[in-house]
Design a protein around this nucleic acid. Structure first.
Lengths: 245, 245
DNA sequence: TAATAGAACTGGTATTAACCAGTACTAACA
DNA sequence: TGTTAGTACTGGTTAATACCAGTTCTATTA
């Protein structure tokens, strides 16, 4: 099971075509709002049938790289570089994207029986254990957040401190070690004030305002994967997301 | 082929099928995680070709109503009622969904020349005017947010105080009066502290923590439609969203 | 000259037909 | 008895073909 391609594994002809077109769009062969070749033209050029062409363009449209106008053509979306911002991201992917160097201090990592509330949210049987990970998140080497994760793992599936220190990204480990792929998440954000303990860890004053981010993550089949609580320093973090309908 | 369906106008056979399946799913004909009939079975039952069946199921899958497993079948997603939470919503749609009665006090509505910063974000020519709307947002009749909207409107396109008071939703007015449909938005959330003026309007103390939500909304073709700033009372509002990749 | 009909493009929908690729169960085999 | 190979399901991919439905421009017409 070799990789050889990260974003668009060539598993099918339409994915190969989509990757090819994506490359050209990113190389700015066409300007934003400029039309790409019509489906009939692509059909001739790449010698594939129109259904396949349309499948490839469907994919690009869903990814937000192009938009279609009936009777006019298919056009390159403006806003280069912002691609994928709507994607479900991990903390480290998120910071890298903004040009900030991510870092972390792992405070603890152990199997625990979570509170009833968390157990219910993770849709688990009473008495089951989850992996709890407590981390201090750094941005350019200064603390910006306190994170506590509760990860649903079978008996025998374990993640070590070394795994986390090497990769930095929990999502990358889940995918590589256990083939668990987070695909959807419900998030809430609200304002809270720092407790004395939190204040010390984040190098701020007690009662300083914090951004509390709670996230429940699901895999492909809507099974809960992880519940996370992150307390961000109000003065050093801004949450960014993209919505669509 | 009667209507009886509001969200999915019957414009095509696959949409008709999708609506039909959606009704059955919502009527809980099949339990969550239970398989719906296979594509070949549906082909016979509804007398449509498999590509059409697949188009309908593609739509349902994107909507999050079902998920597919290669070699096993297509299954009903759990979590009824949460459908559409990932959608781009207006403030009022948002509150209704949570069972809170939305309300508003319109403080001002007028054409203004916005600041350079906002002009740039809305991708407009210098000197152009936008419609500025200042509102106090209410939840169950108490203030929970201060909202300032900057809406891109052509000369002649106007929205009156009466329009807003009647409908309550800016998005509904944009769609009905001018056929402008917001489809995507970039949002940021951060913590700020209340200025004396903001404190008075929101019935809180100066320097109380607030949740600042900025949103830039785009239409189908990625043209900016609206820039909004909303200051929420930290003690009365929790932001909810859904992410997916 | 201005309005209009139509041709020639664009993407959208639908059908037919094969075959590939996972999954799960069963019957034959060692 | 336990393993294995087969088979009959599932969804996934690709093709060839036809026609529908918007958009744009041009050449004809009044």
């Amino acid at each position: 099971m070799s990789s050889s391609n990260d974003h668009h594994p060539i598993t099918s002809k339409y994915m190969w075509l989509a990757g090819l077109l994506k490359q050209q769009i990113e190389a700015e062969i066409w300007q934003p709002r400029e039309a790409i070749p019509s489906e009939r033209q692509l059909e001739v050029k790449y010698k594939v049938s129109r259904p396949t062409i349309r499948q490839a363009i469907d994919y690009l449209e869903r990814s937000g790289l192009v938009y279609r106008e009936h009777g006019r053509g298919t056009f390159v979306s403006p806003q280069k570089l912002q691609k994928g911002m709507q994607e479900l991201t991990s903390f480290s992917e998120d910071l890298i994207r903004r040009g900030i160097k991510p870092g972390q201090i792992i405070r603890s990592i152990s199997r625990v029986v979570p509170t009833e509330n968390i157990l219910r949210r993770l849709e688990m049987e009473p008495g089951t254990t989850v992996l709890q990970i407590e981390r201090i998140r750094l941005g350019d080497n200064t603390p910006i957040g306190l994170q506590t994760s509760f990860v649903v793992l079978e008996e025998g599936q374990e993640i070590t401190k070394e795994d986390l220190e090497k990769s930095g990204s929990l999502y990358a480990i889940l995918q590589e070690k256990f083939n668990i792929i987070p695909t959807e998440a419900d998030e809430t954000l609200e304002v809270t004030l720092a407790t004395p303990e939190e204040a010390i860890l984040l190098h701020i004053k007690t009662d300083a305002p914090l951004l509390l981010n709670e996230r429940l993550t699901y895999n492909q089949n809507r099974k809960p994967v992880e519940f996370v609580k992150i307390l961000y320093r109000g003065d050093r973090y801004r949450y960014i997301t993209r919505l669509s309908r």
